[in-house]
Design a protein around this nucleic acid. Structure first.
Lengths: 196, 196
DNA sequence: TTAAAAACATACTAATTAGTATGTTTTTGA
DNA sequence: TCAAAAACATACTAATTAGTATGTTTTTAA
């Protein structure tokens, strides 16, 4: 990798971590250049504004990460109900980067930036679109393969499951304990069982 | 009401509306005194700090409101599954104050203030505690009265439903349309039906 | 090799922020 | 009625903010 490219990536990665922990608005450019050891001149060479950096984080960090964490598991498994449960279990209980006290990066961004910033809104929409599509497709396939009841509405289920995930991530922040995740997962399993 | 008391209440109410729309961190004291027509001296006579006002909003505005919006409907109806659905339908589709583009005040506060402010964490915990307790109790009663299956775990269902609510509020912000609420409500109804 | 462009560095600015210092006016209770 | 306390008003401050002006250094390509 070229040096300049590496600088840009460092900024994106470190800024993302800071924002995940502190929130977007309360993470200052000075915070970012302090932890990255990158000077202000370098920062503003790579990004015209703070928001341009924020958008880049979503496009270049969040989207690819979600592709690996969400989309792969859903497409590789046969039974979509098992796939969804395993996915949630992995994200909530096993993922090493995500912390219960800081919630879900995508959800945090959405809460904080919508509806005031149209650019953020756009890329965040693409982000969720990406992932609801795959989940819906997986459920539809599961209907064909007999894993899921024929009268199940895939889009509804997807939205219902995703909402639950974003919501429990927020409850986790409040309780600061993965115990709520376990409780949630048990009921999720019950719910998914009603779909087969 | 005494005049001073009225001033304090005006600040709390108008500040709450501003914060609901703009977020806590991005609503400045100057914003608040501008829209309330209250001077800075008056503001800081009633509240030592911004955070003290924030806490007061939760304790004196949010908590009582939730008691009326959440707790009353759940306690007055016989069938808890119907009660939960009606409650969600009212909150999402019929409530005049809550706007799809601004989400849920309690969820927003939680997202923004947790885990960095212990005082906020405490009162927000009390807030959700208040409401999960009532929902859990209603479901338990429903089990006794034959409205809900005996093997249903009331606490799990409560957390599952509340998570879904917070989550769909966030999706609403993203989509800026109540259509997602309708989709969500349909699946919620299906889910609740599996509990009887 | 060298000149131009890319990449980075430093010192600044103007606006905004929460909060304070120091008043004046209004209310209250003896 | 009148003094003390409560309630409010105004002008300020120090810190922080995103962003800029103006450089120097490094890389690139002819």
């Amino acid at each position: 990798m070229k040096k300049a490219e590496a600088t840009r990536l460092t900024i994106l990665q470190k800024a993302f971590e800071l924002i995940y922990i502190k929130g977007y608005q309360t993470t200052s450019i000075d915070d970012i250049i302090a932890t990255t050891q990158v000077t202000k001149g370098a920062f503003y060479y790579h990004f015209k504004t703070k928001d341009e950096m924020g958008i880049a984080i979503i496009n270049e960090i969040l989207k690819p990460t979600l592709k690996n964490s969400f989309i792969q598991p859903l497409q590789s498994e046969q039974n979509p109900l098992d796939a969804i449960y395993t996915l949630m279990d992995n994200l909530l209980m096993k993922n090493e980067f995500l912390k219960v006290e800081y919630g879900c990066p995508a959800s945090n961004f959405t809460q904080e930036m919508t509806p005031w910033n149209a650019d953020f809104n756009k890329v965040l929409n693409e982000l969720t679109e990406q992932w609801t599509k795959v989940m819906t497709t997986a459920i539809e396939k599961g209907k064909e393969n007999g894993f899921v009841r024929k009268d199940v509405n895939a889009k509804r289920v997807t939205l219902f499951v995703m909402s639950g995930y974003w919501g429990i991530r927020n409850f986790g922040k409040l309780e600061n304990s993965k115990k709520v995740y376990l409780t949630y997962l048990k009921e999720l399993k019950s719910y998914l069982n009603t779909l087969k």
